[in-house]
Design a protein around this nucleic acid. Sequence first.
DNA 1: GTCTATATAACGATAGAC
DNA 2: GTCTATCGTTATATAGAC
Lengths: 202, 202
Amino acid sequence: MSLEKETEEMIFIAAQRVFQAKGFEGARMQEIADEAGINKSMLHYYYRNKDKLFLEVFQTSMKKIMPGLFSILNSEVTLEEKVVQIVEFYYEMFKKNLLLPTFVIYEMNRNPERFKEFIASMDIQLPGLFAKQVKEAASSGKMMPIAPHHFLINVVSLCMMPVVARNMVQTLFSLDDEAYFTFLEERKLLIPKIIFSGVQPL
Amino acid sequence: MSLEKETEEMIFIAAQRVFQAKGFEGARMQEIADEAGINKSMLHYYYRNKDKLFLEVFQTSMKKIMPGLFSILNSEVTLEEKVVQIVEFYYEMFKKNLLLPTFVIYEMNRNPERFKEFIASMDIQLPGLFAKQVKEAASSGKMMPIAPHHFLINVVSLCMMPVVARNMVQTLFSLDDEAYFTFLEERKLLIPKIIFSGVQPL
DNA sequence: GTCTATATAACGATAGAC
DNA sequence: GTCTATCGTTATATAGAC
């Protein structure tokens, strides 16, 4: 009988946990092995070296964050609906793994080339439909004129930053874990309001 | 004659650059020495070990980000003016050092206890005046009801995230360095508008 | 204070038995 | 495939001459 798949997957899951918690430089192969409950040399048997193991983890993490965003942006729904869907999409993902966005953002900066390669390999492109919607909404007077990339960055910033800066949020506002999750939940409704109406009364 | 102060300061400046670019785990004492143009053992002579050197850099970085924010929040100006000042304050700082926010946010998560100690030592506290302003604006009908910490996090998120995720922004939108700085400059005017009116036409 | 040389420990990676 | 033992390298840190 063979447990290869199980072992390989256990290693990968352990690597995800350790890399996401400690980053590439801070992660230890020994810790990944301990976390997976197997011998250290198994890591090299299945993934050859630390770089290759990391790359697998990084790419898998990227795939959780980027393609979903772009398929929403490209879909045939209104701008309002897109914002709601993006917020929902991200917060449901973050709820399962709070370390994911920090990991991706940090490792993206540590190795810009690797990120460029990823984007190229996925042929992710800025959706023309989305840009068109933003421009049309502005020219028809329904919205103030705003560059599509500012619009997009605003939504993503309001979603991600409170998770990336989790420790700051919890410490400054004295929130325990439960209160922090409530805080995130509140933002699901809040962010679309801020994007479209700011703090103006309804 | 003695160059102690100069040497110590050169080390500190070099340490800032290396730690902010590579993080604690990625930084090498040798690289800091090279960057400072001095011998590696000088680092230990002046700062004893890597941890102590790092702590100096981290605390100095924190002091650039936190107290200024809170003094604006506590000042006697309108809510609108506070938002304008915060955006101005952060973007002028980031212009000088783009790595600062990423460094602080990342290292804050890597060692939550150290951040708590810092906050305690600075007796930084959530400004009551600011919270009062937000509540009053809501109860008088000028603003929608919004928790003060959401309001604050929204402003900080819109400022910081595009800098923390610089590589993502530049890659996805194909911005060279000059275009990226223009992008940041545009946000100085944009962020207060989004906070108070969202994307509604004026 | 500043250097050279070296101790010490940790890490990634490999060899080889089973 | 999985283990033990170990190699080779690199990192922080220190000792000691000047």
